[in-house]
Amino acid sequence: MQLVCPAGNLPALQAAIDAGADAVYAGFRDQTNARAFPGLNFDDAELRSGIGYAHARGRKVYLALNTYPDSARLAQWHTAVDKAAEFGCDAIIAAEMAVLDYAARTYPAMARHLSVQGSATTAPALRYMHERFGIARAVLPRVLSIQQVERLCEGSPVPLEVFAFGSLCIMVEGRCQLSSYVTGASPNRHGVCSPAKFVRWEEHDDGCRSVRLNNVLIDRFEPAEPAGYPTVCKGRFDVGGEIFHALEEPTSLNTLELLPRLAQAGVAALKIEGRQRGVAYVSSVTRTWRDALDRYRAAPQNWQPQPGWQPSLSKHAEGHQTTLGPYHRSWH
């Protein structure tokens, strides 16, 4: 299995490669990708430089072009595809049909991976993307159980990539409008979820803190309580008079213990989430997974998680908690 790691900027790209990533994924500094955050991503020179760094070490660079352009902005996505081809990206990761179609017709030799944002959860859906746009790989949404992933590996026309670690979107990717309902800014159209400019923290006299997203109260924290980033899906709300994380707790996905099953199912690649995270995260998480994959390759029968792995991963998890998420039936 290939290890695909996040690169939010050039230092992170180099750190991921140095720590043993087989491939990294990156995006341009605009709304053509789903992590269009201030201060993140690559300009042309940085991307060229990153590709050079990776290729010199025999690794790959995938370009995330995984947002949904409206008609008036489609040309900007075409230009991004052009640059990906010109700079020598090994693949683009795209979700939207017009982008995939343009890439397939214009640069048939450049591989097209279906992004998680493409929301393909079944064999027919994957068949559609394969027959229509010749995708070479698909990244599965984080909604399927391990049994469903195993079955899909059998029926898919293309190799599959699954999320292994990182922040957990609990909604089907590419089809969540919670951010845009509150702020007008959406992952699909603008490459952002709950953008920081809409976030307002309030300190109260009793030491409590409240956090609002475009004036909507997402959560309130006791003085010593850890407070996470306020996305709608990880806030606390009132349902029937009870206050709780009605949608999901702040927690990260961690599938380390499932590694053998994913490998046996024929999963082609494991993806680490986190282009918005820094060099320390990328280095440490990549190194742990590299070690886990290498040990599995060397002795699949004897593989078991090493004592240091889970604590090291938990340190980098949201709220320092991890979950098997939808892979495990009880999460549902």
Partner: peptide
Amino acid sequence: DLSAVQLCRERGVPFVAGPSLNIYNHH
């Protein structure tokens, strides 16, 4: 969803694209 698009396409059945299918541009 895309599964429905594909099955309709394979069977030649006309379909309405529902609001949870992502269509954002003319192409």
